[in-house]
């Protein structure tokens, strides 16, 4: 198992995989999955939802690394947590934009407070934007790593709580809850969706590894400078 995963644990392997999968996913979205009664806007769904799920996954990964940092004191976990959350905000802003376009297509408005997923995302997005403000206003060091980690942990708890809160708020903000029970997905649609999901995960993984490589290279260069010139 470990041998099987090993090639995926580096930037090159993941980038290759992402390239392949994104290609297949896009082709499947447009040439394989049928256009249903929802119309063409359903094509947005094929990558909007995977992007949103990827964003949640990266936030979760960031929180996991934060926990590893606090618990095991593993060096480097802080940086990994930060990079994962950075990926999360990138995918998060993509979710907000593509979701907004989808809302415009489907309901004719760029923003719908009735669309719970979008509102939840906005809350989470605001929360994680503050993560960067917080991190960059503290001097680098163990204190910053700890505080960032605690904040990242609060994030994963805030996600389900906010989800519940937004559900609850619907009752007094929009008394008539409108359901969006779309048609059931056909097998070919679900297959396409799954491929798109895996493709987005691979893309996020590749970007995560890439950014991490850059950051580590930075640190190593600084170490090297001190070693050579001291």
């Amino acid at each position: 198992m470990k041998k099987l995963i090993a090639p995926l644990d580096n930037a090159v392997g993941l980038a290759l995989l992402a390239t392949l999968l994104i290609g297949v996913a896009t082709a499947m979205t447009f040439f394989y999955a049928p256009v249903d009664e929802d119309g063409l806007n359903q094509k947005i769904f094929y990558f909007h939802v995977p992007i949103a799920l990827t964003a949640y996954a990266t936030f979760g990964w960031g929180a996991w690394k934060a926990l590893v940092h606090l618990w095991k004191k593993k060096p480097g976990a802080d940086l990994e947590s930060y990079v994962a959350i950075h990926q999360g905000t990138i995918f998060g802003s993509l979710t907000l934009i593509t979701g907004s376009i989808w809302a415009k297509l489907r309901w004719g408005h760029w923003w719908l407070w009735g669309e719970q997923e979008l509102v939840l995302f906005l809350v989470i997005f605001l929360f994680y934007c503050t993560y960067f403000m917080l991190r960059y206003s503290i001097e680098a060091g163990p204190r910053r790593a700890n505080i960032s980690a605690v904040y990242a942990l609060f994030g994963v708890v805030l996600i389900p709580i906010s989800f519940l809160a937004i559900r609850l708020a619907e009752n007094y903000i929009h008394p008539i809850a409108f359901t969006t029970n779309g048609p059931q997905m056909a097998g070919s649609q679900f297959g396409t969706f799954l491929v798109c999901l895996v493709a987005m995960f691979a893309l996020a993984g590749a970007l995560y590894r890439l950014e991490l490589l850059g950051k580590r290279l930075d640190t190593k260069l600084r170490d090297l400078r001190e070693l050579v010139l001291s």
Partner: peptide
Amino acid sequence: STEKYVAAAYLVVFVMI
């Protein structure tokens, strides 16, 4: 216009990456 919106959504992702 639907096609335009779909294309715009893809464009956003493309540009971001």
